[in-house]
Design a protein around this nucleic acid. Structure first.
Lengths: 220, 220
DNA sequence: GCATATTTGTCCGTATGTATA
DNA sequence: CTATACATACGGACAAATATG
């Protein structure tokens, strides 16, 4: 009996396709997604696509306006501020209450190591991926389904926000060693200091993203 | 220009209808929701109902299993524990960072007063409603869209859990004065003490709900 | 401000695949 | 193992709302 026969439904697979297109920058924030055009392009029926839209809407990736269709979400400054407020709450709390022997710690170690290797190769996109994995692992420390779900949603929103900020070196380089420092504090059982370091980390990251967003919007 | 012409779509209204039926106990947790039967009963098409199901699934009110349809969610002990963990995090944080002059404080005052009046009348169901309003107002203190959304979801799940625990006196009576005490601390600017009191409040409430749930499941 | 065209909202009928009796 | 019930997915149709000239 194979428990892992995903048997994904078409709706799930299509949702994944669109997610990928959005985060890959294929679909720019603000783009209107026409039901008729997209359904034909994807080779699925309009009804099915509409259910995909429901999924993505709840995930915050697309916005739905009655009788006006859906469009790729466009996080504004207020959203960024709110997202970082929530991240600070969740990630710092997870660090404060974590055990150094939690399985996720291994994933944090792995992410830090991998990020350093990619940095040596100059592959900043992969550095970014490992950075996200590091923070996901931190949230997993909390062992809370609901917090994890919320975190996945705001991560998706955040990817939208700096999906097109292509200055990846600026965006990710400074954080590799900060992550390593937080990990070391956690492994040493100095949880409160780890949480404190994370708070500072997030403030810096927030300022960077907000500044980049302002430059981007000014450039229109 | 009336900004508040909701012009709700049929999907939204239907979702609200089903939510009401669930929280009213009309639909018991575990009930299977057949597309054909429900769509006919509601007078809407199956396609439309399926979109409603997507909404409710993301809200955690119903569970969806591929090719087996949806059924009313049935929170288990792990869910209750997780929900209270999240509540503690959100509500205590909101209290710690709140201003005594935030508009939501007025709503808290209102909820406490109303709960006392309903208690005098012996209307425990209304006491429960005011209690939920009190805690919703606390979360609003945080001024965070995302935290508010998460809180709405776990509130709905919680309603599922003790929707049928009809011992409302036991469930709500002890909390009226606890709420009043927390409010007084907040108004006095003693935020940390208010958060501490809330933490204790939630622990007590958690134990009560878990015990009631155990009794209920034993009685099957 | 009006008439028209486009797009979404909703319904129906049907075919196919999957799970359960 | 077959049969049945049900969810999945499709395509077409029309009404209603919005956008366009």
């Amino acid at each position: 009996m194979k428990k892992d026969a995903p048997a994904q439904t078409l709706i799930d697979r299509t949702a994944e396709t669109i997610r990928a297109r959005i985060t890959a920058g294929d679909l720019v924030p603000g783009t209107r997604l026409s039901e008729a055009a997209l359904s034909e392009q994807l080779g699925i029926s309009r009804n099915t696509l509409r259910e995909v839209f429901r999924l993505l809407t709840q995930e915050g990736l697309v916005r739905h306006e009655p009788h006006r269709g859906v469009s790729v979400a466009l996080p504004d400054v207020a959203a960024i501020i709110d997202i970082y407020r929530v991240r600070r709450l969740i990630e710092c709390d997870a660090l404060r209450g974590a055990s150094a022997f939690h399985p996720s710690v291994a994933r944090m170690v792995q992410a830090v190591d991998a990020a350093r290797r990619w940095q040596a190769d100059g592959d900043w996109r992969s550095v970014g991926t490992e950075n996200m994995a590091f923070h996901t692992a931190i949230v997993e420390l909390a062992d809370s389904d609901r917090l994890m779900r919320l975190y996945r949603q705001i991560s998706a929103e955040l990817r939208l926000a700096f999906g097109h900020l292509n200055n990846h070196a600026l965006l990710h380089a400074p954080y590799i060693e900060k992550n390593a420092a937080i990990l070391a504090l956690l492994q040493a059982g100095r949880n409160d200091e780890a949480a404190e370091a994370m708070s500072g980390y997030l403030s810096l990251s927030e300022r960077t993203v907000l500044a980049a967003l302002a430059r981007q919007q000014q450039g229109r």
